[in-house]
């Protein structure tokens, strides 16, 4: 459990954007692992199994949670959800755009925080693609949405993430007149 708990927790935390929920999900993942302990003990793919189960349980949790709390959670969220404040900040995407004089640990914390700030319909596909290395088609299947929508959501999520990071000073921003 020691070897995998950070991986399982990270998967759940990045997808949910909520540490308390991620801890509950991680607990469920390890309880399921215990049920299959005999198979997993000798398996070389235990890590992959745990990651898959963590992703599946998190997505199940999110879909249940979304149905239950749709009104509360998505009150302000629609497809035009970019902050007006961010509209004026265009991140610089050149290879040396990442500000070097920020401590790596601090930069990592800011990136995690920025992920949490993304709306769920942006964060989930982005994390599945960039952190879980899932192909577009698999993400579309998992989330039961069309392939073009997944691509659009991920593209918007990347832009929103880059803008948040530009605002926090992690990447260079060029001010553009909107």
């Amino acid at each position: 459990m020691h070897a995998y708990q950070d991986m399982v927790f990270s998967t759940a935390a990045r997808l949910t954007g909520n540490d308390a929920q991620a801890e509950d999900i991680a607990q469920d993942v390890f309880l399921k692992a215990y049920e299959n302990f005999d198979q997993l003990r000798s398996s070389s793919t235990a890590g992959g199994w745990l990651k898959t189960v963590a992703t599946r349980l998190t997505l199940n949790h999110l879909s249940r949670y979304r149905r239950r709390w749709r009104f509360f959670s998505e009150l302000r969220r629609d497809d035009s959800d970019e902050d007006s404040e961010l509209e004026f900040t265009t991140p610089d995407l050149t290879p040396d755009a990442i500000v070097a004089d920020i401590d790596a640990e601090q930069r990592q914390a800011i990136i995690e925080q920025a992920l949490r700030e993304l709306p769920e319909h942006h964060r989930v596909p982005l994390v599945l693609y960039h952190f879980e290395d899932m192909p577009y088609q698999d993400i579309a299947n998992q989330l039961r949405v069309s392939l073009p929508k997944v691509k659009t959501d991920i593209q918007r999520a990347r832009m929103a993430l880059a803008k948040i990071l530009a605002r926090r000073g992690v990447v260079r921003a060029s001010l553009a007149s909107a």
């Binding site: 950070d6 927790f9 935390a13 990045r14 960039h130 952190f131």
Partner: peptide, 16 residues
């Protein structure tokens, strides 16, 4: 590729 570059070195979150 920019976002890839950003998250590539991102370490795992520490479990509680």
């Amino acid at each position: 590729s920019f976002v890839d570059q950003l998250v590539r070195g991102q370490p795992l979150r520490r479990a509680p």
